[in-house]
Structures are given as C-alpha cells and as structure tokens.
Design a protein around this nucleic acid. Sequence first.
DNA 1: CGGGCCCTTGAATTCTCTCAAACAATGTGG
DNA 2: CCACATTGTTTGAGAGAATTCAAGGGCCCG
Lengths: 250, 250
Amino acid sequence: MPANPTPTRRYPCEKCPLQGLEAFREFTADELEFVSHFKTGELVAEAGTTIFAEGSHNSHLYTVLSGWGFRFKMLENGRRQILNFALAGDMIGLQGSLLGEMQHSVEALSDMLLCVFERTRLPELYRRFPSLAFDVTWLCSKEEQILDEHLLSVGQRSAQARAAYLLLFIFSRAEMRGLTQGKSLTMPLTQQHVADTLGLSLVHTNRVLNRLSRGRIISWQNRRLQIVNRKRLVEIAGWEPQHRTERPYI
Amino acid sequence: MPANPTPTRRYPCEKCPLQGLEAFREFTADELEFVSHFKTGELVAEAGTTIFAEGSHNSHLYTVLSGWGFRFKMLENGRRQILNFALAGDMIGLQGSLLGEMQHSVEALSDMLLCVFERTRLPELYRRFPSLAFDVTWLCSKEEQILDEHLLSVGQRSAQARAAYLLLFIFSRAEMRGLTQGKSLTMPLTQQHVADTLGLSLVHTNRVLNRLSRGRIISWQNRRLQIVNRKRLVEIAGWEPQHRTERPYI
DNA sequence: CGGGCCCTTGAATTCTCTCAAACAATGTGG
DNA sequence: CCACATTGTTTGAGAGAATTCAAGGGCCCG
C-alpha cells in the first residue's frame, strides 16, 4: 500500500535542504531551473510505510530529502535481505523506471520526506541535460559499488567482521549527510534490521554486537550508536570508509 | 598486469557480432555511426588475464564481444568474492569511469574479445546521444538488479538453493546470448568459481553440486553443464529466470 | 613419467541457527 | 496508577550447517 504523493511543496528546489550539505554538488542555474520543473511534488512517508513494493509498476521516482529507508527483497519462506539503506540525497525507484517492474521493495524506517519525479519524464532529462543524465548514471553506479561491497561482506567476511563493516558503513554515510554528532549517531534501525542486512540470525547478531560493546569498541543503546574505538572497529572489519567525494543528486 | 589494447579491428561496428543476436536491440543509423567512431579498438584477453585490477585507474571502458569474464573483489586474507560474470554484450569498467578508482577486479575466464572505448569520451556520448546515455544507465541498473538478486541469495538462501539459483542464472544468461545447445552449455567455470560466487567453501560446494547431480537434476562434467530437470531446479532455487527482454549495448 | 589442476571423500571442528524463555522499555486502556 | 500488550534485547542449550584439514583420484600436457 504505497502512499500517494501529495501536492505539498514545502521545499522549492532553490531551498532544497540538500543544497546546504557540503557532501553534495551544486547545480548550475540552468540545471536548477530544469530540476525544479522536473519535480512534481513531495511525499511524506511515515515510518513503516512501504514506498515501493516488489513486483509493482510504479510511475514515480524519488529522491530522499530526509529520513531513513531501506531497500530489501523477500524470499517465499519469509526471510528478508536488506540490500541497502536510503538516506538524504539517495535516489530510489530508478530500477523500476528503467527496467519496468520493481524487483525489490523500499520501506521507510523513519518518517521520510521524498522529492517526487515522474519517471516518464526521464528521457526528457536525458535529452535536455546530459550533465544531469550523467549524474543519474553516477548514482546508479555508486549504488552498484555499494552492493559489490556488501556482497563481499556477506559472502566472505566472518560474522564479527560483517557487523563491524556495516556499522562503519552506516556511520560514514550518515556522517556525510551531517546526521552524526561527533562519534555518535541516532539511528532508527533495530538489531533485526542489522541481522537481515548481514544475512545472520537475530540471536547471533545480538551476540556479535554485544561482543563489540563489551570490548568497548562500540556502544549502541536507545537508538544511539557510538563508535568508541574506531581504529579497532576498522581492524575488525578489515575495511575503511572511503574519503568523501562530492556526490551529485537530482 | 592488464593487457594493452591492440589496434586490431576484426569487427567494424556494422558487422558487430552482437548485432545478430535477437537478445540485443538494434542501433539507428546515427547511433551506429557514432558508436563506430566512439570505439577505439579491440582487445584480446587470454584466459586468466586480469583485465582490470582493483585500485587501478583505468582509462578504458569495454564491451564484451565474446568469451567469459568475471568481476570480483578480494579480502586481505585471500578470500575472493565473485560478484558477477561478464558475457557478450556486458559493459565492464563503467564504475571506474564514473567513480574514479576501480573498486573491483575483472579477470578473463576464457579467451575474450573486447570492444574498447575511451572513458574520457563518455561525456560526449551523453551530450550527443541521449538514447545511448540512457542505455548506459540501463545497463548499470541491470547490473545493480543482478547484484540485488545475488545478495539475496548469498544472504538468505540455503547452500543447496544458492547453487541451484546460480546454475539457473548462468544458464539463462548464456541462453540469451545463444551460447547454449538445448539443455546444455559448455562453460569455463570451475567449482572454485562457483564456490567463490556462492560464498561457500570449495568442499561444501562440491557436495552440494554432487547432490544435484545424483538427484538427476543437473549434470556437470568436462565443462559441460546440463539442466536435466529444470522444474526441480527451479523449485530448489526458489527462483525462475525472468523472461527475456531486449537488451541494449554500446 | 612427473607435475599441475581439478574433483571427490572422510573426519573432526567451529560457526551459526533454531528453539525457548526471560527481561526491559514503552504505551494503552480501564 | 496499575494490568497488560507490544516491541526489542538478551541468554542458554542443543541441533544443524558449513568449514578446515587431510588425502586420494582422474586427467591432461609437456
């Protein structure tokens, strides 16, 4: 039951909340004008809402303005694999726009504000603004790279390393968007979400996380994650976040 | 040690070996002319060659004309995760072109023939041929979708189901490219490749595959895979290949 | 004939899962 | 304000899955 886009328009593109963040690239005046025209509205999705359902044909494309969401796929036996999390600046629904049917679902983890575009107008964007078209491909390619990394993690790392990797990954993504306060981050995930991302059972995930907590490497209580010993966490994960690069968005 | 592109040009674009295959879309005359001009040569990569190395900055972009390759990432401890296989029509090196450094490697599994493009000329393609730019994004999005599926598999399916899924996946991709003969397919993978794709040990992969063979569901000997009981294989995998859709390529 | 590559099998070990139960925090209605 | 449901976290114990170690066999090629 995807929610319907509302005509609400709290944020005209000139005052896009993403503009302020240094992680994101600036638009030229031309681009801004076009994007502003490309945007058809805003959608408020409450926590727990399904934004896209696997198997559906959705005519919209969204950019996350605020809040947390996650992409996932389900197996018939009820098992769920979380593929990635969607944060401010992330585009969701592109696969459906290009390939037809959505092959994954997207659910809001917290209340979210989404910027709405019509997928039928994507070709127009490609025709008139090659630079923006390039950005769309960039975003797609970046998502692919993240999936490569996740697959490596789920396929080859130990449970402990996987957990460490995921926490570092989430933290660094949130950090780029200015969602962190120093070493801590308030985030809406439960251990079940972590388990479903890592491909581990809830029980085992809990034990693995507790080991990290008891080792004073992280602390995670009441939705608040704190990276206590980053160096150690990086060692355990065998992975370090990349340096920030300027990121496009539409 | 990536091989160097040779000036060889056995296949002018008008006679591209991919043109004949019904799985691929046709170019318009304009597009064909541009692509022909975009292509800077051909590269023959022998089986076992590293085409891209993780961490390198490569200035080329390739489209596979023939042969098999695979994308993978390594962990420091030597473990390898195969991310996907590259067959005729697949584009490789796009991530490097857009994001800078290659974050994965690509190795030739059999001898391969690759079509070579300069990545610096990608912006020109976007400016002059929005339709081709759209196709590039399509290919990227398709790769993302495949990774979603693999991640679901590695994260949530049992070893048996994972193996069944992978065989079906590979078979159907090969089938679209006309590489199969009825129910069989000659392919250059070893069980080690399968193991590294599934995130399983070689020993366990062997046992799982043998169970499929003994159940007369598949047979795999001397590089020749045969889908003996497709219905059963689909049941075990809990997955069925999508119907073929026309696929773009550059 | 020897070496290299790949497949196969056995046995012991380790990791992760499932089942089961309890606890903490929060919110709701009476 | 208390009883009770709900959601999320924690722990124990036994079962099951997959790993590692070890070794042997088949096949091809120089």
